[in-house]
Design a protein around this nucleic acid. Structure first.
Lengths: 212, 212, 212, 212
DNA sequence: GATGAATGAGCCTTCATTCAT
DNA sequence: GATGAATGAAGGCTCATTCAT
């Protein structure tokens, strides 16, 4: 019994450390950017000594990939959950999907900043790219499908591809804006912006947005 | 006389060198990302020897800032020109402004990539941020102003801030998509997407987009 | 009673562990060379956890010295035994001594490799040197003594020092050759080579060698 | 003219630096052994700063390989020269070949020590092994050939392979002895030892050695 | 002005050693 | 006794910067 607990404890402890280091990596990355993130910083942010990161992740590269995976998985799990809880109505599903992107768990400044740091670096690193991209493709495909369903049902004279693309782009743009503290607005503002677009595209399915 | 020519020759040559190095920086940055860009790479890409960059820019930091300024100035000049050539009609002006972002001179993959590399890094570097941001603020202010004018004239039941923000975000998102070769589409596709949104927002001022 | 058994048990176990770790050290050293031998490798080769080596040997240095001592003792015990079993005839004694170097127990590829790894490193490490060297001096002195006796008895017109030195060098050279798998030959071949030299030096005391 | 000199001067300078660093590597290796040789030590021994080694050799590994090549080339060139200058008589050639190994240029304590450090390490490193081994094979083949010729001409009742192997081993053993300062003797002593063996093997072709 | 060798600080990584469990 | 996570020093490598030619 004690042995089992020990084993679990140890194993858990190792997982906990990895988690801790990944969180530290997100912190540092958000603060110092990709090029400014050093192993030493990460270890310090985790309150540990410098050698430990290599012990748990072998390589800086691997630590970063794990961190990226972590962010990507969290992001995907978030919208999966939102979609699954949205019933069977395409308009509800689309709304749930789009708004889920602005869940504070996902959309904290620090995670946004870390994500962006990776994202830019990924453009010249195939290893990262696959983790950044795989999400988006799946997400975009669903957005397109839902747009098609709504347009068909509502008999809107719209080109589904353009509308889906616009919504995709809108989300990405809002994320960027949220991250840039230059023109700060709240998650609620972002959602209102989405709502305004949805109403403009599909007036029969979504109410007007804003204090009008 | 000879002395003056010398001076002019040198000055010209100096400017030429700087330009050459800035272009090389954009190339390398697009290819290798921010963290992968070294002084040696830049010098090699410019066909020059490694010591020369410090001679002309003193510091890597300064070279990068100059490059960023160069991109920002070019970007701003582009939309300024488009705006100035668009007459006095707000709807025309807004269209001209938004479409100017997809001018191939500004929007080449290589410049987009370099811009993004800077942009992400800028989030943790005040020095860069001011060059990235100053543009956007001015640009956004004008978009908002034009949206207000159109909404007022057209008596649209819309919240100008939301619409302006949506258009801003849309542009940024499309830029990102254009850069990411994952889901490739043409500049023309991007413009169509803008057009679709403009029509959705201001149906009396913009025609429907796409092959409908 | 139980206490004593415990103590004995522990002591035995302790000795067993040390032996086990020394053998593991020889293995790793033979496989990876001196510079490639890490505490972790040794522990793994012994099927134990990494902390244990320091527990039993305190220091890497001490582990290596113990390992070297072990090899040196084994080597010395081997030729002592051969010499003691060779009767009182100098020629028999010399033959027994020289051939004992090629006893498979002493001369396995893995022990040769480990020995060489130490030997080279010892040239710049006084601590090791004394263990490598002390043997040789004693061994060489006996070889010289036996050569003197044989030369005197056989009235050979030879300089004992030169002959003894030649035999010493011959043995070392053959060891090296045996270790280098480049030009592989058997222990038997090595012995034949010794025999050929003995016959050349002391034809009245040793028969011709080889299939002539 | 000046330009050409400059160019040559520069190129030469680069070669000179490499040479200088290789010599420094030999020094350090002789003093500290393989595992104790650091880039910093090498740079310091050359009177240069630490970054310079990577500039000229890219990698520690490459520096060491170049150093090994340098030693191997020098060794080979030495015996080639001796062989070529020895006339056409096999006995003269064999003598010249064997004695050339004890040329002070080749056989300085520092070069011997460096060579041995490499040699031991090479046993677990294929990259080094090829440089250590290629020489020996060629050398051994020639020794064997010459022994065959002498044995045939002199009608000695000897097995050529055993004699050649003995001479090979003898040389290696003497090298080791020369390096180990434990039992120091001069190059002249080493040559005497060779001479004693040659006389023992081929009494009609070589005179007795030593002060008899 | 231009070249490229040289410098040296900073980073990633390895590894002997320690220590809580 | 044993385990394996944690520490921290040291080494190799990169790269911005300097400077003699």
């Amino acid at each position: 019994m004690a042995a089992i607990e020990q084993t679990i404890g140890r194993k858990a402890s190792k997982e906990v450390r990895r988690q801790q280091l990944i969180e530290a990596t997100i912190d540092v990355m958000a603060r110092k950017g990709y090029s400014g993130t050093t192993m030493f910083d990460v270890a310090k942010a985790a309150g540990l000594s410098s050698g430990i990161v290599n012990f748990h992740f072998e390589t800086k590269e691997k630590l970063l990939v794990e961190t990226l995976k972590y962010l990507a998985d969290e992001y995907r799990a978030n919208w999966h959950k939102a979609l699954n809880g949205a019933g069977s109505n395409p308009a509800d599903q689309l709304g749930a999907l789009l708004f889920s992107d602005f869940n504070p768990d996902i959309c904290s400044p620090r995670k946004l900043a870390a994500w962006c740091a990776f994202w830019a670096e990924a453009q010249s690193r195939p290893t990262y790219l696959e983790h950044c991209g795989s999400n988006d493709e799946e997400y975009s495909a669903i957005v397109l499908e839902l747009c098609r369903a709504i347009i068909r049902k509502g008999r809107y004279p719209l080109v589904p591809d353009l509308i889906a693309r616009a919504l995709d782009a809108l989300l990405e743009g809002l994320w960027l804006d949220l991250m840039t503290m230059a023109k700060p607005y709240s998650l609620e503002d972002a959602k209102q912006t989405i709502a305004a677009c949805l109403h403009a595209f599909f007036p029969k399915h979504y109410p007007p947005a804003g204090k009008s």
